[in-house]
Nucleic acid binder design. Sequence first.
DNA 1: AATAAATACGACCGGTCGTGCTTTTTGGTT
DNA 2: AACCAAAAAGCACGACCGGTCGTATTTATT
Lengths: 212, 212
Amino acid sequence: MTSDGRLARGERTRAATLDAAVALATEAGLHGLSLAQLADALGVSKSGLFAHWRSKEALQLATVDRAVAQWQEQVIEPALRAPRGVRRLWAVHEARIDFYAARVLPGGCFFANTEFEYNARPGPVRDRLAGAFNQWTAFLERLVQQAADLGELPADLDAPQLAYEIDALGISAVMRSRLLDPDAAYRHARQGLLNRLRALCPDPTLLPEGPS
Amino acid sequence: MTSDGRLARGERTRAATLDAAVALATEAGLHGLSLAQLADALGVSKSGLFAHWRSKEALQLATVDRAVAQWQEQVIEPALRAPRGVRRLWAVHEARIDFYAARVLPGGCFFANTEFEYNARPGPVRDRLAGAFNQWTAFLERLVQQAADLGELPADLDAPQLAYEIDALGISAVMRSRLLDPDAAYRHARQGLLNRLRALCPDPTLLPEGPS
DNA sequence: AATAAATACGACCGGTCGTGCTTTTTGGTT
DNA sequence: AACCAAAAAGCACGACCGGTCGTATTTATT
């Protein structure tokens, strides 16, 4: 084990920087993210950040990657503990809403914020964001299809359609939770999918109980 | 008729400026909107803008108001020509998607973009945006309730819930239409509401035909 | 014709941005 | 103990930011 303390120190700084960058980007935007602010928040110098990323764009791309990893750890992986099928689909939706409700990020959702920010700004950052969104969509569609394959949802179900609807409920939840009544937002997001799954799923025991 | 040519000229400039500001804000954001860029795009001087708005914030607030008026003219009013009830509800959804598909604004949707931008930025601009969102939500809920009162939807329907779902489908449409496949986005947004209304509405003749 | 008001302009301010260049500090190798 | 590379800091730069000021131009009033 030849752990070079110098390299280790750099790695630590880099990780701490990206965590702070993800959080800050949800407030100021990925474009609005300023190196001076970020350096201040970390107690380091602005030029110290430049030692790790040659340019702001490189930092932005790394920030997107870090946000993807965070989403994987805190939303997807916990939900994957639920058994395949409708229950896992529901678990993802719940984990996502919990992530928003726990206010892990001050600006709500890194992806929703930045994707709206960059939808008219061509370039590598936008492409990276679009790629992440594409992956997330594919993941949701796979989960839906799995549930259908297991017979927990109709065999002729339009999987991309249901995946679209699930994601839509989630995006609206984080948007409304920051501008209007948070509790109502989360309730509507949950109830929306619950209604939809109850109408589709022949086995009601797979779904949580609750108001009709 | 004492139309003061000076005031008329000012009003013209002000209107043109706000139209450009709404469009620019969907690209650069309402915060990222720079007075120099805006002045350049209009072919006027930066200081000329300060003759009309004392500060950037005043311009931002006026821009929000202009966007509200534009939404009223181009989405709400056309849809209000449809008869009350389910058909009007559908007309609003259609008008909204058409507005996005026509690419009236380069950044898609002024409200979606700016509301995500400001959801963690307290202040007058955020409050104004939240107010606009509240009004829009109330409008949708009123339309849903009307349809229920007319007997075109179940009497015990949860109106805010359905309004939430309709708006969610629309927001996702504009987001996905700029990052992924636009046609798929619009199709899913339409199909989502169509499925929902078909399941709720006892009279199928009120809804457009189309794929099941 | 003279005055007053609304509009618009160019020049400029202090401040912050992203980004290079140079130096110092830190930690590991030999 | 000498040496060295990685990390971090210090510093300066040009560009752009929101905003102010004095001035010129247009238009209505008197």
